[in-house]
Nucleic acid binder design. Structure first.
Length: 572
RNA sequence: CGGGGCGUAGCGCAGCCUGGUUAGCGCGACUGCUUUGGGAGCAGUAGGCCGCAGGUUCGAAUCCUGCCGCCCCGACCA
């Protein structure tokens, strides 16, 4: 591509709206331009990289024998009402009506559509296993879009759905996708981890996130330094600490006026947060649950939700705390609660001999409260880990925290959707059984953004070959006829060698072109001006290593082909 | 949704507090000449409903009210 005919409007300065490097660099290189919050134009340079990601994804999905199709962006509300998610999904689902006042939404994910399709087209176990996928635009009316393509409202996603006749086969399909994802992100040249994850409100029981390691990542992941167990912090299993028997202390009531927070109570009573029992009032599918964690710990709502087996877990309102918990916000305690109130306590509470907690009346706390003696609870792992907590998987290692960007997420769903939408097949005995499903997503734009987060320097992007919008950036320095002719010839020969070349034939000064080249970050830069022409050599620079060399014109194509072609797919 | 910040030329900003000529600056764009191995120089040109609407005032970018948009922190999130 000749730069003089290309559209890559580079910016010397980054727009202030962009705070993370990938967003800034995508704007500065002219890959994207914002249209509205979380909605972007993808310009030619950006599209080339997105297409590279898509191609890798497509090749690996096809390799895993998944079948590509496309589903609509606009989905009838009726499908979502069938699955029950029309009422559950919340404001993220952008709804509207057509001219006949029919309900529609923009697809944020496609379980409903694919399940409906499967229900009508997959009839027999003989057709299974089957995996269907699409690469297509999604829309989620995110509460807070940010960071450019990292977290847009409109974004391109690869979503795949597997169908099997039983749970064993479905899990085999799941692990096959796990392998495909591993190959995909390796081919993208990313430093990533597959971590165990919460399944959230999509349902199911087995799930991994593919997290690209980056300090700017929005997710926290815990990695055991001994056994390698890696999980999203909201899910990371903790080693249970030793249970302490009740200390021989009496219960005392303390006046704590207006001290409704852990911090203020500690200050008032002169104790440490870890001497307190934090009581969190939650409503799980409409039923009250009191969750207890040590004062300096935080409740993990996903862990609690999984433990309770509920779909919707939300903090109780003040009214609910009064009616269902018979207590007062800020002064809740587990002692003497209504008999039908479920109480779940973290193992960390079991490890306390006694603790300070709310007195269930305004402005009072109690001290010396012991589990077993003063209240009963179901003990479980329901808190968020903190750095250097004990790993619950190997029992001996400690957790280290890393930041990650979630570029892929895979779920084993079971029959949640197939049962809701009556998607069944006939098994070997002629009996109708619900399809066992899995779903598997990859954020295409987010993957490109993650690659930039992970590979850039103060001058610009440093693209790995597989994702680079162009592999070679050829710079013509000067516009003398001889230089132009030689550069044109080099350009043609690089193209003939099968390489993807951005040829900067613009009438700009050398410094300008160098800066643009470093910003855009193609893996190889080739520069030729009068100086090189007279020496009969071109300058070749590796963007990643900074290594530069001068080589004879005749050696250029074979050298670059030797470097680039094998790098296109590191798994071959 | 809660808290905060910002909307002035394509981008980055000043001016606003303390109302008053023709609203500036840097970068960018366009034209010409010079320059050509690290974001050039000179000369010239174009480009603004100062986010929108209402109000106060003789007079509003500036003060007041409402709305819209964007960004940040938090909550939220297959």
């Amino acid at each position: 591509m000749r730069a003089s005919r290309f559209l890559a409007p580079t910016l010397k300065e980054a727009p202030q709206a962009a705070v993370v490097q990938s967003h800034q660099l995508m704007l500065r290189t002219g890959m994207i331009r914002q249209v509205a919050a979380g909605i972007y134009n993808v310009l030619p340079l950006g599209l080339r990289t997105l297409r590279k990601v898509e191609t890798i994804v497509r090749e690996e999905m096809n390799r895993a024998e998944a079948l590509e199709l496309t589903m609509p962006v606009v989905i009838p509300g009726q499908l979502w009402q069938e699955s029950g998610r029309w009422d559950y999904y919340g404001a993220e689902l952008l709804r509207f009506t057509d001219r006949k006042q029919g309900d529609f939404c923009l697809g944020p994910t496609h379980e409903e559509v694919i399940t409906s399709l499967a229900a009508s087209e997959i009839k027999s176990y003989r057709q299974l296993p089957m995996n269907l996928y699409q690469i297509q635009t999604k829309f989620r009316d995110e509460v807070r879009p940010r960071f450019g393509l990292m977290r847009g409202r409109e974004f391109v996603m690869k979503d795949a759905y597997s169908f099997d006749k039983n749970a064993d086969d479905a899990q085999a399909s799941y692990w096959r996708m796990h392998e495909a994802y591993t190959r995909i992100f390796k081919r993208c040249g990313l430093d990533f981890r597959a971590v165990e994850a919460d399944t959230g409100n999509i349902g199911g029981s087995l799930s991994h996130e593919f997290q690209v390691i980056a300090d700017s990542g929005e997710d926290a992941i815990a990695v055991c330094e001994r056994c390698g167990y890696a999980a999203n912090v909201e899910k990371a299993e903790l080693r249970a600490s030793e249970t302490q028997v009740c200390a021989d202390v009496s219960i005392d009531e303390h006046l704590t006026p207006e001290k409704g927070s852990i911090e203020s109570v500690c200050q008032h009573l002169g104790i440490e947060a870890k001497a307190m029992i934090k009581c969190v009032a939650m409503m799980g599918d409409g039923e009250p649950v009191l969750a207890l964690v040590r004062g300096d710990h935080d409740l993990s709502e996903p862990k609690l939700r999984a433990l309770l087996g509920v779909d919707l877990l939300v903090p109780a309102t003040e009214q609910e705390i009064a009616d269902r918990f018979d207590s007062v916000p800020g002064f809740i305690g587990p002692q003497g609660r209504p008999a039908d109130l479920q109480i779940v306590a973290d193992h960390g509470v079991a490890a306390m001999g006694h603790g300070v907690t709310g007195a269930n009346r305004k402005d009072y706390h109690v001290s010396g409260l012991c589990h077993g003696r003063d209240f009963d609870a179901q003990f479980a792992d329901v808190r968020q880990p903190v750095e250097s907590d004990g790993c619950g998987r190997c029992g001996s290692g400690r957790f280290r925290f890393r930041r990650g960007i979630e570029v892929g997420h895979i779920f084993y769903l079971g029959t949640k959707y197939s049962e809701a939408m009556n998607a069944t097949v006939l098994d070997e005995n002629g009996k109708a059984v619900p399809l066992e499903m899995g779903c598997y997503g990859i954020g295409i734009g987010r993957t490109a953004a993650a690659a930039i987060e992970q590979s850039h320097d103060h001058q610009g992007i440093v693209w790995p070959v597989p994702l680079a919008p162009f592999e070679v950036h050829l710079l013509r320095l000067g516009k003398e006829a001889e230089v132009s002719e030689r550069c044109d010839a080099l350009y043609e020969s690089l193209l003939a060698g099968g390489l993807e070349v951005l040829y900067d034939d613009r009438n700009e000064r050398p410094g300008f072109k160098f800066k643009d080249a470093e910003l855009i970050g193609c893996p190889w830069r080739v520069a030729l001006g009068r100086r090189g022409l007279e020496a009969g050599q071109v300058e070749v620079v590796n963007r990643s290593t900074g290594e530069r060399s001068d080589m004879d014109f005749g050696d250029l194509v074979s050298f670059l082909c030797g470097e680039i072609l094998p790098a296109r797919n590191p798994l071959l």
